[in-house]
């Protein structure tokens, strides 16, 4: 599904990713953990194609196709979805209108007709139920005045609508109370299949109790320095990151 090799990326003059490798296969859930400033959110932004970041070396392949030169929307059309740590507020565009634009622009890029309004409505109804989203919520301006939890739930709702191949959840658990966390995790689990993959970026083990990863990676100083099974997350929760830093020095 996703294969990243020797990825170097920088913003302005600061190198943040320094030779990162990761491979994610279809049907898998990977967790990426690491201390602040390790490059976790940068990795998410670089995969999604944010223009401020310059890829200086290495490549990013999605289903064996190099996507590192594609525009963000083209990557989205290829099936990359990034759930933002801080979703942007867009006053004046309703959730529904936004989703309609997303879906139809993606269909257009694939040479498909616009989705009939009836089908779109049906899909919206199904997916909003999955995430326990009130219909009134859908006619509000996108993210405007939403609570932290509502924003994150709305991200996963959009993910459900877009049906991506690769979903990257960037600190989706931050700002969520335990009920919202459960709803969001439940949504992600229901959307998981053998044809898609999920990367969960998080500071805490908490989310991983609900979205159980097949692999856990530690990102430190721009590189994946340790990989393991879900038990690694528990170990990190208990011992912090210092022991990994010590291991690296040794």
């Amino acid at each position: 599904m996703l294969k990243i090799e020797n990825l170097h990326a920088r913003i302005e003059d600061k190198e943040i990713l320094k030779g990162l490798n990761i491979q994610v296969n279809a049907g898998e859930v990977h967790a990426i953990m690491g201390p602040n400033g390790a490059g976790k959110s940068t990795l998410a932004s670089v995969i999604a194609g944010k223009e401020e970041y310059e890829v200086t070396e290495g490549n990013i392949a999605l289903n064996e196709k190099d996507i590192s030169e594609l525009a963000p929307e083209e990557r989205a059309h290829e099936g990359v979805f990034l759930s933002f740590q801080y979703p942007v507020e867009i006053p004046g565009v309703t959730v529904t209108n936004f989703i309609k634009s997303s879906i139809n622009e993606t269909r257009k890029a694939k040479g498909l007709e616009e989705m009939p309004a009836k089908d779109l409505l049906k899909m919206i109804r199904e997916k909003s139920e999955l995430l326990e989203i009130d219909r009134k919520f859908l006619s509000r301006s996108l993210n405007e005045g939403f609570s932290g939890g509502e924003k994150k739930r709305n991200e996963i709702f959009q993910m459900a609508m877009m049906e991506p191949k690769l979903a990257i959840l960037d600190e989706t658990d931050s700002g969520l109370d335990i009920d919202a966390l459960r709803i969001v995790a439940n949504g992600v689990n229901k959307l998981k299949s053998n044809d898609n993959a999920v990367i969960v970026i998080t500071h805490y083990q908490r989310l991983l109790e609900y979205i159980v990863p097949d692999f856990v990676h530690v990102l430190y100083d721009g590189k994946i320095v340790k990989s393991g099974s879900k038990e690694l997350a528990l170990e990190l929760e208990e011992k912090g990151y210092d022991w990994i830093k010590e291991e690296l020095k040794a």
């Binding site: 999604a48 929307e73 990034l82 004046g92 879906i103 877009m162």
Partner: peptide, 24 residues
């Protein structure tokens, strides 16, 4: 970037943002 990430091309994203700005 947020809108592009959701599959909306830059040109359309710009237009939609201006629409949102005025619609408000």
């Amino acid at each position: 970037f947020y809108m592009q990430q959701r599959g909306i091309p830059k040109k359309e994203a710009k237009a939609l943002l201006m629409y949102a700005f005025s619609n408000d």
